[in-house]
Simulated scan of single mutants.
Amino acid sequence: MRTLGVLLAGSAGVGHQDHQSQMYSPGFAAHPGFEIVGAAEDGFDRPDVDVVSVCVPFERRVEVVAAALRAGKHVLVDKPVALTSAECAEIAAVAAGTGLVCLPAYHQRFNPAVRRARTAVAAGRVGLPWNVQADFLVAGGGPVWPYGELLNFAPYATDAVHAITGLPVTTVYALSGPADGPENLVTLCLTHERGMTSTVVAGRTAPIAGVRGPSLHRYRISGSHGTLLADATRPRVTVRDEKGERAAWTGHGTVHRMLGELHAAVTGGRPAELGPADGLAALLLVEAARKSMESGRPEPVGDQEAS
């Protein structure tokens, strides 16, 4: 397996998050196809760097991602790609101009249950899908004020729904918690192309003993010829140690699988399954949902074509 050199750029994220230290750096270190060669927010012309993992603050996100791409480096960019669809469109344009991989880290679409659901739907196992019910709830953790879970957690679920069905969202009606507090829970009622609908509930709950990460992560896909339930928290085992009880996965996690797709795309000279257009679709949906919360009515989702 060809080894790709990785440069870690930044350690910022939504609110208190540091996905670079907690997710991407350990993921690259554990993957046989990558080697971390340094940490810097510039110097992208180094010959030993093939991939730049970008987690710089949002005010520098467009600048740093564009600089890495123009230096001939492939990019993994923390989610969300940017804070606005206009900024994401800038990144998409640069990526398209270079022909390099620019992969937004919506790693939940690589969950084995989501992948199996996608394969089943594509094979016609449920007929023509007409509705998806999605739940993405995480137990514990701090609020990501002022961004909220509409920007933080909801796009994981909406991206997974898109990955499973292949149908973009056209209209959204959104509800959330109190406007003067953390946006801990959001409900999105979505209309997709070809008349499919979906409901996404995403957010953060109180801590649950023995649970770290998603406490409820599932997709119920209803079609003309059947229904499929994909529970993305299983299979798992219960581990009891001196720190208490927790649920743990067996096998590779979603970040490892995402990095495998990144490696395959870079070494194979092909586009990655997940790209700037997916990051743009997520942000356009967030912006339309915010508008819906203000207007109290369904709102159309903007143009999802990335130039």
Results as ranks from 00 to 15, higher is better:
M1K: 11
G5V: 05
V6H: 08
A9L: 10
G10N: 07
G10C: 07
G13W: 06
Q17C: 07
D18P: 14
Y24D: 07
Y24T: 04
S25Q: 15
G27N: 06
A29L: 11
A29H: 12
A30K: 13
A30D: 10
F34Y: 14
A39K: 15
A39D: 09
A40G: 10
E41H: 13
E41A: 14
F44S: 12
D45N: 13
D48C: 07
D50A: 11
V51A: 08
S53G: 12
E59L: 05
R60D: 08
V65Y: 04
A67D: 10
R70D: 09
L76V: 13
V77E: 01
D78G: 13
P80F: 10
V81Y: 02
A82S: 07
A82I: 00
E87M: 11
E90M: 07
E90K: 14
G97C: 07
G99Q: 12
L100M: 09
A113P: 06
V114R: 05
R116F: 03
A117C: 08
A117H: 06
T119C: 00
A120S: 10
V121K: 02
G124A: 10
R125G: 00
G127L: 08
L128I: 08
P129M: 08
A134V: 03
D135G: 04
P143A: 13
W145G: 00
P146A: 04
P146H: 14
E149W: 03
L150E: 03
N152K: 15
N152H: 15
F153A: 07
A163M: 09
G166P: 08
G166C: 05
G166F: 08
L167F: 08
P168W: 08
P168S: 07
V169I: 13
A174D: 03
A174Y: 08
L175H: 12
L175A: 09
P178I: 03
A179D: 10
E183T: 02
N184Y: 11
C189K: 13
C189F: 15
C189W: 14
L190R: 05
L190Q: 03
T191I: 03
G195H: 14
M196K: 05
V201K: 06
A202W: 01
G203S: 06
T205K: 14
V211R: 07
R212M: 05
L216M: 12
H217P: 01
G223K: 04
S224T: 15
H225I: 00
R236N: 08
D241Y: 12
K243E: 02
A248W: 14
H252R: 15
H256N: 12
M258P: 01
M258I: 00
M258H: 07
E261F: 05
E261S: 13
T267H: 14
G269R: 15
P276V: 01
G279W: 02
G279H: 09
L280G: 00
L285F: 08
V286L: 07
E287Q: 12
A288H: 09
R290H: 03
S292E: 04
E294H: 13
G296D: 09
R297M: 02
P298R: 15
G302N: 12
G302R: 15
Q304G: 09
Q304I: 02
Q304S: 10
